[in-house]
Structures are given as C-alpha cells and as structure tokens.
C-alpha cells in the first residue's frame, strides 16, 4: 500500500464578489497516493479549477478558504505564508495550466525560462547541471535538446505544451496538477501529449491530478476519479468502478452524454437546464432540479447530504444515488 502524498479534507472556498459570496468549493475531500493519477471531472464552473488553485494556494485575491486542510506529505498548506509557499510550489507541487503554452515569455529562450525556475529553487546547482537536467526532461517529453535555445514563437502549439510539461517537472515535484492541458490542442496532438504525460508519470512515479471536462480523457488517464457538480464532489472512486457502475445520476448522465467513435452508435442522453447558481445556499440535492427522474428523497430537502460508501473505496452523494 503506497502512502498518501496529498490529502484534502473538507475544503471550503468562496469568492467574494459584488453580488455576494460564490461558494465555489464545498466540503471537498480527497487524497492522492504516491504514483497514482487522480481525475477531477465536471462542467465549467463546477469548481474544479478552484480546487486546483487552492492546492497551490494560488487563488485569486477575492478568494477565501473558509475552512478545511490541504496536506502535502503531512505539511499543512492552508495558512502558510508566501515565502514558505514559494518553496512548496514547483518543488512539492506544480501545475500545467489550461492554455499554459501561451504563457511563455516571448523574448526569452525556452531553456532559459526553465533554468530560471530551477535556479529559483536550487541556487546551488551549476549551469551545466541545469542544462543536463533540462535536456533529460525534454527527452522525456519528446522534445529535441535543440529546443533549449529556441524562442517560444519558433515552436508549434504542441511543442510549447510539451515544454510546459518539462517546466512543471523541472524541480522534481511530488504532485503535478494538469488543468485541462490539452483543451486548446487538436485531437492528434492531444493524443501525443496525453501519452507523454502518462509515460512521464509512470517513469517518475509522480502523483498526477488531472482536471478535465472530457470524461473520455479522464477514463484514459486516471486510476481514481471524482465527479464535481456545483462545487462539491458527487461521486468518487476508482475510475473503472465509476465507469462500470456509476451511482450518482449526474455521473450516469455525463457518461451517457459522451459520444464515442468506438462501439455501437447509441442514442445519447441530454442533460437539460443549467447548473445552480453558487451564490445562494443550496438546500437539499444540488442536482435534483436537473435530474430526469428525481426520487422522492431527492426533493425532500431534509435528507442529510454527503458521500456514502457504496462499495469499498467508491462513494457517491447520498441524495441522487440510484435515481435518474
């Protein structure tokens, strides 16, 4: 049994806005083991990126973590000051953002930018050592060593994204968060990048947190997964179990609304309506207004919300289990 690298317990986070507090993350708990890849899936606005930002303590100025704990290797990240966090970021936990390939500084060579990140954390390392390190990283993500001396505009989108992955790995983090790293890319290049990430993860024994709206990508990339809806996790468990025996109505609808090129062409189910506003407190089941077949329990707001264990390691939200 490998040990837990990252554990998040009862995380609550809200944004203070003009129209009121937006509760983006509600009571989210999960843990990631060493060498494991964990997927977070949900619609846009469900809070998955907010979770990623809280993990790095990089949330926006108006975001407040009201309660909960985030522990990286037993070290509490919530409440750390900026200089302590700087050490943890990149070194302990790093991130590949959505569209990060556009984040390269256009006038500095790619290699120099990665070198700078390493220097920030390991000032004692020599330039030659760093170059060697970058070369090996580039090799790992399928880039030519010559790319070190290239400017970002000389690279294609896929190459820039590979280099971003190398940048994320440059300080040997224990946990890498990948927040929709392939969304802006073409299918063919997405496929290559996914393979690259998978390969690197296995090679280095990294823990990966993969965030996506695309359930097909999650299916291929992760061992454990959680489905988020309206700020909370509605189903969590081993990916295979979640796909084979989805318990929550939302998970089931997500699975049945994803077209595939493989297998019989089947009628897809559509999910009507909009996710609820996160400003107002949601009483009862957050999904019941969109649930195609809400059970009587669903509409009964008194019922206690929360995850219940359905089979070992597989939890689903109490309210919408086996309806819809």
């Amino acid at each position: 049994m490998s040990k837990e690298v990252l554990s998040v317990k009862n995380l609550n986070m809200h944004y203070e806005t003009l129209s009121g507090d937006v509760h983006a993350v509600k009571d989210v708990s999960f843990s990631v083991k060493e060498g494991e890849s964990f997927g977070l899936v949900g619609e846009s606005g469900c809070g998955k990126t907010s979770v990623a930002m809280s993990l790095l303590q990089l949330q926006a100025d108006n975001a407040k973590i009201s309660s909960g704990s985030i522990q990286l290797d037993g070290v509490e990240l919530v409440g750390m000051n900026e200089s302590e966090l700087r050490k943890v970021r990149w070194d302990g936990i790093s991130i590949v953002f959505q569209g990060a390939m556009n984040a390269w500084n256009p006038v500095v060579k790619v290699g120099e930018q990665i070198r700078e990140a390493i220097r920030e954390h390991y000032p004692e390392k020599s330039k030659a050592e760093n170059t060697e390190k970058i070369e090996s990283l580039f090799k790992m993500v399928g880039l030519d060593a010559a790319v070190i001396d290239r400017f970002p505009h000389e690279l294609s989108g896929g190459m820039k994204q590979r280099a971003i992955i190398a940048l994320a790995l440059s300080c040997d983090p224990k946990v890498v968060i990948a927040d929709e790293p392939t969304t802006a890319l073409d299918v063919v290049i997405q496929d290559q990048i996914l393979n690259e990430i998978k390969k690197v993860q296995q090679l280095l024994g990294l823990s990966l947190i993969y965030i996506s709206h695309d359930i097909a990508v999650i299916a291929e990339m992760t061992d454990q997964m959680a489905v988020m809806y309206a700020g909370s996790i509605v189903e969590i468990g081993p990916t295979e179990k979640v796909f084979s025996t989805p318990k929550h109505a939302y998970t089931r609808l997500l699975l049945e609304s994803t077209p595939s090129v493989v297998g019989e062409k089947k009628k897809l189910r559509s999910l009507d309506g909009e996710p609820p506003s996160l400003i107002n407190e949601i009483i009862g089941c957050s999904f019941s207004p969109r649930c195609p077949d809400p059970s009587s329990d669903c509409e009964n707001p008194i019922k206690e919300m929360g995850l219940v264990e359905i089979e070992p390691g597989h939890f689903a939200d109490n309210c919408c289990v086996d309806c819809g």
């Binding site: 299918v187 063919v188 997405q190 496929d191 996914l194 695309d214 359930i215 097909a216 990508v217 299916a219 291929e220 990916t239 295979e240 796909f243 084979s244 699975l255 994803t258 595939s260 090129v261 493989v262 297998g263």
Partner: peptide
C-alpha cells in the same frame, strides 16, 4: 487519436 470514454478499452 480520439480518447474513448471507457477505462477498460
């Protein structure tokens, strides 16, 4: 290249 929404595939 297209991901398949089925972990066992």
């Amino acid at each position: 290249s297209i991901p398949v929404p089925d972990p066992s595939y």
